[in-house]
């Protein structure tokens, strides 16, 4: 078998500077879960279909199971662990708890990342915006209704805060 050496690179994860040592083509998902011990990011399918591994790289949503580790070189990464501020839940997280947007919870971290991006792009989303914005994240428990309601309620709360 061909032997490949690990490479070192720097990135920021949830606001914290890190030096990562990883095989260049390792999946970023594995680096995050195993090396950084941030297990909130999940693997549902390993082929970019389910969205359970959704994170943000430089503010863009990606399926971390499809991203080679080296691509994170110099990047700013945000995972579900970086969404709350200390003990204070983000409005979107709070809304998922109150409105039962999380049932089994396995899609929830990815879904919340997608919801954050959605609300960033559409501060006042239409039902179609919400459906479209979350279409890359599969949920088998909720039938999505309570997720839509969680997003809408979060949007209302955010408007009131402004």
């Amino acid at each position: 078998m061909v032997s490949v050496a690990k490479v070192n690179f720097d990135c920021t994860i949830n606001g914290e500077k890190k030096t990562i040592s990883a095989y260049p083509m390792a999946r970023l998902l594995d680096v995050i879960r195993e090396d950084c011990e941030l297990t909130g990011t999940k693997e549902g399918c390993g082929e970019g279909e389910c969205g359970a591994c959704t994170i943000m790289i430089d503010g863009e949503l990606v399926n971390s199971c499809l991203v080679p580790a080296l691509q994170a070189d110099g990047a700013e990464i945000k995972t579900i662990e970086g969404v709350a501020t200390g003990e204070q839940l983000h409005v979107v997280q709070e809304s998922f708890v109150v409105n039962n947007g999380a049932q089994c919870g396995i899609c929830t971290p990815g879904m919340i990342m997608a919801a954050l991006k959605l609300l960033e792009e559409h501060p006042d989303p239409s039902p179609d915006d919400i459906r479209h914005g979350l279409a890359g994240n599969l949920c088998r428990c909720t039938g999505y209704m309570k997720i839509f309601e969680s997003v809408l309620a979060a949007c209302q709360s955010m408007k009131q805060e402004v």
Partner: peptide
């Protein structure tokens, strides 16, 4: 939901 908070923060631990 009783374990809701741990699910929205990603703290809850599944087998993997």
């Amino acid at each position: 939901r009783k374990e809701g908070r741990s699910k929205v923060t990603g703290e809850i631990q599944y087998i993997d």
